[in-house]
């Protein structure tokens, strides 16, 4: 998405820094004592290591790949569709 090598390098660093943040947040899961949202036993998976991280990653990914992209094939029309 960027042309100059200087810009690509900046983007690469930015992405690496961001990934490092994500990993640190994930590791916090091991340290922080977590309180469950649900009453005991209703949704045990909520307390698993990395549940929020995985759910946070998978839901928008799935939303785009199996939701929006096929939807676009079905409903996308030219900008003048309603003008004609």
């Amino acid at each position: 998405m960027n042309d100059s090598p200087k810009k690509n390098e900046a983007v690469r660093r930015l992405v690496l820094g961001f990934v490092a943040c994500c990993v640190s947040l994930l590791l916090l899961d091991l340290i922080v004592h977590r309180h469950l949202s649900f009453a005991e036993g209703l949704l045990p998976v909520e307390g698993w290591f990395g549940f929020y991280a995985v759910y946070g990653f998978v839901s928008p990914y799935a939303l785009i790949v199996i939701g929006s992209i096929p939807l676009r094939k079905l409903i996308m029309r030219s900008e003048e569709y309603y003008d004609g």
Partner: peptide
Amino acid sequence: VLQLQLVFFAVLAFV
């Protein structure tokens, strides 16, 4: 922490 995880990993999905 959990909200930050949700947000950061959703952004990661975008990246």
